[in-house]
Amino acid sequence: MSDEHLTDRESDYVASSYERDTRYLTSRITRDGDEGWPVEPGRYRLVVARACPWANRAIIVRRLLGLEAALSMGICGPTHDANSWTFDLDPGGVDPVLRIPRIKDAYEARELGYPLGITVPAIVDVPSGKVVTNDFAQITLDLSTQWTDYHRDGAPDLYPAQLRDEMDEVMHRIYTEVNNGVYRCGFAGTQDAYEASYDRLFVALDWLEERLAGRRYLVGEHITEADVRLFTTLARFDAVYHGHFKCNRQKLSELPVLWAYARDLFQTPGFGDTTDFAHIKRHYYVVHKDVNPTGIVPRGPDLSGWTRPHSREELGGSPFGEGTPPGPPSEGERVSPAHNPAIDANGMVRA
C-alpha cells in the first residue's frame, strides 16, 4: 500500500517489523493555486474505495463538508490486482468521468512508468487525466481549509485553528499507534515484531479509553478531523483487524468507552452511512493472500450492535457545534443495505 494504505504493496513483509511506504504525490490543490492546481469546482475527481480506511476518511470529510457538487467521486471496487484498483462497480468497468478502467492509468498519465504505490484516495485532474495528489492526510485537511468557498451551509469546522496544535499531536499518535498499528500487527514478519506491535496498539487503545471516558470527542466539543481519522480504524476493528490482523486482546465491542464512542460517530450522518462492511471484509480477506491464503471471507461478526444507544450525549458537546448535519447521500453514492445492515433505503443509518 502507501503510507496510509497498502494497495499494491499490501502484502509486503520485512524481516522484523512492517514499515509503511510513505512516498506520495504531494502536490496540493489550494485556493490560490500556487502549486499550479487551483481549487475549481468540477475540475477534479476524488477516487476512492470504500474498503480502504484511508480513502474512507476522504469520503466522510467530503460528505460532512457538503463538497459533492464541487468535487465528484469515483468509487473503485473492494479488491485489486497487481495493476491497481479497478472501476469494476461501473458499467463496463470504466469510470464514467475519467473514462479509464483502473486508477493506475491516471498515475501513468502523471508519470509514465510511475514507480511508487498506486493508492487511493487520489484526486485526479479531469481535463488532463493526471493524478494531482494521493497524500491522503493532506487531502482531507485541504478539503477543510482550501475548499471553504464550496462548503455547504452549516458545514462543521473539522480543523479549527485554535485546536490545531492539540489535534496534530493527537492525530500523530493515532496514526502511528492505531491506524498504522493494526497493520504492524497484521504484517509483522516475526513473532517478536508482532508481539511488540500488539503491545503498542493496545497501550494506545487503553489511552484512548481513558481520554474519551470524560469527553465526547477527541479534541474540542464537536467532531473534528481527529475523530474521522480514528473512526475508520474502529469501524474495521471487529470485522477485520481483530481476527485477520491478530489484534485480539479484545474486540472493540469489549472496550466500553471506545465502543460507545464509535457507535456515537457511526450514528452521526457522514460516518455509518459511508461504511460498507461487505467491501471492507472482501478487500482484506481476499487481497491479503499471504495472511489469508484461502481467500475465504468470514460471515461474522454480528454487526447489529452499531445502532444500539450509546449515551455519549451525556458528556456534552454536539456533533456539529453550531452547524448542521449533512442531508441524505445522493442515490449514486449510497451504501447498499445489503452491505451494511444499519443502512435504510435512503442510505441513512437507521434510527
Rank of each mutant, 00 (worst) to 15 (best):
A204P: 01
R57K: 13
P256W: 08
S27W: 14
A161R: 13
H288A: 01
T176Y: 11
P160T: 04
L163N: 01
H244N: 10
I296D: 13
D302C: 07
G189T: 04
T275K: 01
E177K: 14
D199L: 11
P121T: 05
P78C: 04
T145C: 08
L64H: 11
A226Q: 07
R173G: 09
V286I: 11
S253K: 11
M73C: 15
D21G: 08
T275A: 13
S27D: 14
W54H: 10
Y285M: 02
E10T: 14
E314I: 11
R50D: 11
W259V: 00
N83K: 14
A278N: 05
L143M: 12
S84Q: 10
A278I: 01
E225T: 12
F231Q: 08
R282S: 09
D344T: 02
T119M: 01
Y217S: 08
L158R: 06
W207C: 10
S197Q: 04
S304M: 07
D125H: 01
R62A: 02
L315W: 00
D34I: 03
S253M: 09
K104G: 12
P121E: 09
V297L: 00
S2Q: 12
N292A: 08
A51N: 09
W85C: 06
L158D: 05
Y175D: 15
D153Q: 13
Y114P: 05
